[in-house]
Design a protein around this nucleic acid. Structure first.
Lengths: 153, 153
DNA sequence: GCTGCTCTTGACACTAGGTATCATTTCGTG
DNA sequence: CACGAAATGATACCTAGTGTCAAGAGCAGC
């Protein structure tokens, strides 16, 4: 059972990394916690707009910078959709390595555990001589709600 | 042993799809064949610039449109690199479903066969109720030549 | 509580990469 | 060769994001 992250956890992580706990960072953390890890997906621009309602003094550049930091700190996950757009979602605490199954219609996100077998990575490292450092797997489809809709045009 | 594609093959594919074999399309096909499938990677912009040297009358929009078409026709493969940039490369004829292992330093591309087991796809379709329509897998690392370089800063 | 140093911010100009529009050109069929 | 549709090139525009920098605000030490 994965728990949602708290504002304090995010701010503590900033401190732990030697960064300051500023007002914009707090405002953005609050918005993220309000959204929670409920499969909610958003772009940096979305988050900026949402934060603006309660903290209109937050600048766009700051919003983008903070999203980047939160991703580095492991609180946000970047997800690629079938249409090529990139968005983020809040990582539920304790979620280990996983990938995403996304709906190409409504952008719903479902985390999945499936991944390449470690043996396969080793095999390709051997064959190619590469030092493998990471990978991304994105799976696309239509969620149950969107399969009925004939919005295929 | 996979063979490189020819200009005629590309132009025939356009015709077969009910499209015309125009001068810009020919010019771009020629540039692509000149590059070949030799792990060469390029952006639409790169291709446009290259084509301009021999056919300066080709417009930017046309270059982008043609790259899109060639991708739809299966002659080009879109590859995502570790830094998030998207580029293309020429698909060698007869290459079936595959993914790419890319060098995060020099952008070298190695095709790999490894993929998720079909059973895993079925399992996640069952669990989630999604109708799965596609996926992308990108693997990042450093090629043998770039492992020595201490360009880590 | 005040000082001062540094990190961070907000404003804004700018860029990369790509798309929409539309009058003009050019295929290729008849 | 003439014609209609498809394709083009020029251009304006767009999205998503980055670089710059003077001004502001945390936080440590006093």
């Amino acid at each position: 059972m994965s728990k949602d992250v708290t504002v304090d956890q995010m701010l503590s992580a900033f401190e732990a990394a030697g960064m300051r706990t500023t007002r914009p960072r707090r405002a953005m953390a609050e918005q993220l916690v309000a959204w929670g890890a409920k499969e909610k997906e958003f772009s940096s621009e979305d988050l900026w707009h949402a934060v603006q309602e309660k903290a209109p003094w937050v600048g766009r550049a700051t919003a983008y910078r903070t999203v980047q930091l939160l991703q580095d700190l492991g609180f946000l996950d970047r997800v690629t959709f079938a249409d090529g757009t990139e968005r983020y979602h809040v990582v539920a605490a304790g979620h280990e390595h996983h990938h995403h199954l996304t709906c190409e219609m409504c952008h719903r996100i479902v985390p999945v555990e499936a991944c390449i077998a470690p043996a396969a990575f080793e095999a390709m490292a051997q064959q190619s001589g590469f030092a493998i450092s990471g990978h991304r797997l994105e799976i696309f489809g239509r969620c149950p709600d969107c399969q009925d809709d004939a919005h295929s045009c």
